[in-house]
Design a protein around this nucleic acid. Structure first.
Length: 248
DNA sequence: AACACTGGCAACCGCCATGCG
DNA sequence: TCGCATGGCGGTTGCCAGTGT
């Protein structure tokens, strides 16, 4: 049972909920509009590099929160990419407007499968690039924790309600020099024991009846990796990376 | 017009780290 | 050192507006 703040409106909000709402929605200088192509590219680029580390990605996009980016990725960007990457079988071309896209189950490709592999889009000669202050930083996401967080400060997003007292904030107010916090992560930015969960999320986005639920830490998921080599081949042999314009 | 379905997004959940007494 | 409160984070849920039938 959490502690509920004084609540003249009768809303059942605990302090944590209020804080979250402030950080993700009410805070000044938050952009609520469409994502630009540049932002799209940056998100995709960072995602291929570090996976679903939304707080880090958000730190590179002033005015965007991790929640925003997460939602945007899950609802739009991922579909854009999938739509571009997945070779359509002729029988799948005539999809009715509201019919779920018939994405093959092998599509998701993150996290990287080896320390030398930076993600399945990685290695492409692409106009998509992370900002210099990100990629040129000493951050090494192949290790457990970035030595220094390549984060652009967002002090301006800290509203007067908090007196600007927070040293600096990532998208949701986390301290910049503590970007990587929370549960222990493995080498690829996936919580220990949850190595497949990020992948799983990428797989099952509601399109499939196989949508899993309730997997706890350490539990295995039903993802079928049998086609991994197939998709590797697809990526490596196609020009999807070099020629793909994700955002048109 | 009514119903069914989908997509977007704010909010919630649960875990772990940190700070402090 | 321990226990508790709080913060940070990623994943998930649920509401609702929009759209198709």
């Amino acid at each position: 049972m959490g502690f509920f703040l004084y609540d003249p409106l009768g809303l059942k909000r605990c302090g944590k909920s209020c804080r979250l709402r402030w950080l993700n929605y009410l805070r000044p200088n938050i952009k609520h509009g469409e994502f630009s192509d540049d932002e799209d590219k940056l998100i995709c680029s960072l995602f291929t590099s570090i996976g679903s580390r939304w707080s880090i990605i958000a730190a590179q996009l002033p005015g965007r929160t991790d929640n925003d980016i997460k939602n945007y990725w899950n609802t739009k960007l991922k579909k854009k990419l999938m739509g571009k990457l997945v070779p359509h079988h002729p029988s799948q071309n005539q999809r009715k407007p509201h019919q779920s896209p018939n994405y093959p189950s092998f599509f998701p490709l993150f996290p990287p499968q080896s320390p030398t592999q930076t993600g399945y889009f990685a290695g492409y000669e692409s106009p998509i690039s992370a900002p210099p202050n990100f990629l040129n930083s000493s951050t090494d996401f192949s290790t457990n924790v970035p030595p220094t967080a390549p984060v652009q400060t967002q002090e301006s997003y800290v509203g007067p309600l908090f007196g600007g007292g927070e040293a600096s904030s990532s998208s949701d107010g986390s301290c910049n020099n503590q970007v990587i916090r929370g549960r222990e992560h493995d080498n690829y930015g996936v919580p220990s024991g949850n190595e497949n969960l990020g992948l799983q999320s990428f797989f099952f986005d509601g399109y499939s009846d196989q949508k899993p639920s309730g997997l706890g830490y350490g539990e295995s998921d039903p993802v079928d990796y049998s086609s991994l080599e197939e998709i590797k081949e697809l990526i490596s042999t196609s020009n999807v990376c070099s020629n793909l314009n994700f955002f048109c």
